[in-house]
Design a protein around this nucleic acid. Structure first.
Lengths: 205, 205
DNA sequence: TCCTACATACTGACTGGTCAGTATGCAGGT
DNA sequence: ACCTGCATACTGACCAGTCAGTATGTAGGA
């Protein structure tokens, strides 16, 4: 239990979190070593155990911080400036993709956290991944419902649109991580949005 | 180096692979213990080291086997019975989704193998994941080119269709793994195919 | 067809390195 | 004098990998 620090050295805790993010995203949970996380933060292992109960809790804290940052980043865009729903969906896709491309360490961490429960760590991490996906689907779902209501989107697709868009973004990230050249995230983003919105089938015009 | 066995106990090697698949997919690479893999196969640790160089090679062997099974399974469907490209794309989506749903251990393993290089294991595993995604994109890409040539698919979407479909399938699997109720793979499959092919935007009819 | 001389395919006890977690010390603030 | 916020040194469990030993073949000579 991290006793609430009062005369804290400014930022020790967040420096530990930063260093932990680096190490975990570079080496994974098991190969990340507490002594090196501590060294990376310029403190000792004692400091880590002062601020965090154990390695697992540190990992959870890192994930919590990073996930909430992404969610916040995308939510702002989704609430949007009141344009059309289609425009806001395009913006959401662009925002997510941009965030991925700007935060590769975050992507690594996300892949780790989205592993099936038991792999790598505890069920708790799996629960966080589940929540994250849910929040993503909920956000997209709300947008889609609005779009259907406004007559912009097809009512028949309302049910799958959310899991499909979340899957799309997640899966693109996975491909990008292992092969950045083959899947140039940023460049693809507009076309991806187009394909998601309008499909790939040729229609009469 | 596994010298070719002649008086092999029938199936020891494949029993080890089966047990390793179970353990790795249940516990991940690091928490899977060789003694338990051996016990699960009904042999001793020595037998594991007789057939495989080390733990990493065993992991690679398991992944290779499983990935090539999926690829083969889907490729057969993609070559298809000569129907329309759209029909074959639907069939590919259904085949992949069905395969996922029927082989949850495989899904866990796939998630593990698709981790960024260095996480969990070596660059070699990352290379396999890269190859797998490439093969997937290539397969879809060939289908899409045929579809464009036949006038079924929109030429403007030809470039993104492959990474998008691969992403879609991969991302759906990820969501399904951590939350099977919220993302009922099999039931969603047809609608997913519809969304991918025709998009979600409402069009005038 | 039986014996010799190996080869194959294991067994299971042991070792050595690694690393999470702990015990203890200690400086500065109050 | 005591608490906070660390630093340092240590412990012990865990587990990959090793290796001497064994049991079961089997090819070839006599």
């Amino acid at each position: 239990m991290p006793r609430r620090p009062s005369t804290d050295q400014p930022g020790v805790r967040s420096r530990i979190l930063d260093s932990a993010l680096r190490e975990f995203s570079l080496k994974g949970y098991h190969r990340a070593i507490l002594d090196e996380i501590a060294a990376g933060a310029g403190v000792s292992k004692g400091a880590v155990y002062w601020h965090f109960e154990n390695k697992g809790e540190l990992f959870l804290a890192v994930i919590r911080q990073e996930v909430s940052r992404l969610i916040e980043h995308v939510k702002v865009v989704a609430r949007g400036s009141g344009g059309s729903v289609v425009a806001r969906l395009r913006a959401v896709i662009a925002a997510a993709v941009t965030y991925y491309a700007d935060h590769p360490e975050f992507c690594s961490l996300l892949q780790l956290s989205a592993l099936p429960g038991g792999l790598e760590l505890t069920r708790e991490v799996e629960g966080m991944a589940r929540d994250m996906y849910r929040q993503g689907r909920e956000m997209v779902g709300a947008l889609v419902r609005e779009g259907v209501h406004r007559g912009e989107l097809d009512a028949g697709r309302a049910g799958v649109a959310a899991p499909v868009l979340v899957a799309l973004l997640d899966g693109l990230m996975s491909q990008w991580i292992v092969d950045r050249r083959a899947v140039p995230l940023r460049r693809l983003a507009p076309d991806v949005a187009g394909a998601f919105l309008e499909g790939i089938v040729k229609r009469a015009d």
